[in-house]
Amino acid sequence: MNKVMEVSGLTKKFGNFTAVDHISFDVTEGEIFGFLGANGAGKTTAMQMLCGISMPTAGKGTVAGYDIIKQNELIKRNIGYMSQKFSLYEDLKVWENIRLFGGIYGLREKIIAEKTDALLKRLDFEQERNTLVKYLPLGWKQKLAFSVAIFHEPKIVFLDEPTGGVDPAMRRQFWEMIYEAADQGITVFVTTHYMDEAEYCNRVSIMVDGRIDALDSPAALRHQFKAGSMDEVFRQLAREAERGD
């Protein structure tokens, strides 16, 4: 299987504080990879390095086929990204948001127009084409944000707590979109604080104090830690954490 991401010894220090401490792992094409950890464990810092917006202090790796250190600009162009906090421009219309992100990722006008039609049709959104995003219900916004994040067909999409504060039914709809994307071969790298969502990943890693202390399929982790649920696995690991968040 092709690797979409491979990192080894990835480290980030701020002064004498080691935020990310020699993490090594790889992610396979089409995989849904859950990136878990307590607040302050180093997830955000690690994600920033993987997305090419922060330089590691040590270590190496590739994301979407590009070198984290030498080709970080190319990484940015070849990944998708979505978070609960930053996703769409509220004061732009639905089509304008798609147009903007398509343009940022360098797609041609004609391609954007064609893909926009197809996307709106698939989401059953055609009647909302000219609606300002701020007037969309949250569930729709979220679907649109995810679709925009993978509009340029990246090899891998990073989802940073995509479902925080969301209705249980909407969370599940969202995960079904994630499955669809994965079935189409897009690799999904996702962080979440919902442990039931950890179960929906093919593999999960759990960060503690800047290290990856566990990495396997949810079932294997439950077995390894003799735990009934991922919540319990998480608690066992986080209990060993020494640094407060």
Partner: peptide
């Protein structure tokens, strides 16, 4: 008002 949104499971407990 939503004191635990974005907070990890252990801190929530």
């Amino acid at each position: 008002d939503e004191p635990t949104t974005g907070v990890d499971p252990v801190s929530r407990k």
